[in-house]
Write a protein that binds this DNA or RNA. Structure first.
Lengths: 210, 210
DNA sequence: CCTACCGATCGGTAGG
DNA sequence: CCTACCGATCGGTAGG
């Protein structure tokens, strides 16, 4: 199916509805009603409800992939280390989420609703994407820039925090996309960054009372 | 409705199905099939599909509330500060999630599917719960134990990371519940902890290349 | 993009 | 816990 303006409109309203009610909680007639047409008329533009979901998921997956590749390329200059690369990955991810919270929510919550080979494909693409985070964190641990943490756990911690943005962020609110990216890059970096004696901190850390 | 053993069984299989397919993606007949009975027979035990969802959500909400209250009480002794309190809250939350990942997933993803006054109630209870995290973080910022971060953003970052455990954690995997709690407490604490010159770090941080 | 329609499935009830 | 059944809605097709 070619991408027509009408088709993009369908995707737009579908992403709002899928976000609010989920894929299975949204009917073809719900989507049509939001466009002021009949349910059957939707099929002049799309092959199936599943196809609408896929176009949203696929588009977002591509955006995340491109943003991460660009970020890593830009942060792989001499002088930049794993810290810069992690912050770049975080900023890139937050940027994509904040730029289209509706589709990002659908991507995060509804990729399980994708059926057939596309399901396998999206699982694989997600894994490749997450691997970038794991690799940068593992690099930072290896160089001592980051604390001696488990890269798998730290990457999962980080990525789920970033995806969690869809659960609370309001683009019209007091925090702009760039500020959000800065705030999250700061939090994500320090979560993994090596600090004096961090090895001892987790177990027996005691703050000196003021 | 009283809690009978059968009713608990229904809740158990429903939480597995709701987790996998979502509330609207799971039919009453799906639940019944998993119990080897007819769909209509389910209504001898529950009033509605919505009631099954609510019993899962309500049970988990109570567990989170009790765990957090206990954690804060235990970490409010003299000598304990916001750092200990945040770690205690994190450990408590992770403990509840890891102890019942199925119901926790339903709580995290399907509270939107709760209808009527119960929906308002769960929104309010969630907000009260999140407020505990915001307050502890704000306290830590005020005392200088934590970096000068935005408590709302930091609490959202932290809580979504904790809830993200349901997206990847496998109880039968290499990481036990206690280790998971320790790892997450460590990451969550350092994400907010004040370190030398952190005020400058977010903006122009440059790692010295090895 | 419409009307008319398809078989399948939905949550739930009646009455044992 | 069952059979039998209810009206409503589901995703989708035929044929303009």
């Amino acid at each position: 199916m070619v991408e027509t303006p009408r088709r993009r409109e369908i995707e737009d309203v579908a992403s709002v509805l899928f976000r609010e009610h989920g894929y299975s909680g949204t009917s073809v007639r719900d989507i049509a009603r939001a466009l002021d047409i009949r349910g059957a008329s939707l099929y002049a533009h799309v092959a199936s409800k599943q196809d609408v979901l896929w176009s949203i998921i696929d588009r977002m997956a591509s955006r995340f992939e491109i943003a991460a590749a660009d970020a890593l390329a830009a942060a792989s200059t001499p002088g930049a280390g794993p810290g810069e690369r992690l912050m770049a990955l975080v900023r890139a991810h937050v940027g994509v989420v904040a730029d289209d919270v509706g589709r990002a929510t659908v991507f995060v919550h509804e990729w399980r609703s994708v059926t057939g080979e596309r399901h396998d494909q999206i699982v694989e693409r997600r894994d490749r994407y997450e691997e970038r985070f794991r690799a940068v964190i593992a690099e930072g641990v290896a160089t001592g820039t980051f604390a001696p943490i488990d890269p798998e756990v730290a990457a999962a911690f980080t990525l789920t925090a970033l995806n969690g943005i869809v659960a609370w962020y309001q683009p019209a609110g007091r925090i702009g996309p760039t500020d959000l990216a800065d705030l999250y890059a700061d939090l994500a970096l320090h979560a993994v960054l090596a600090t004096d004696g961090r090895r001892e901190v987790p177990a027996g850390w005691r703050e000196v009372p003021a």
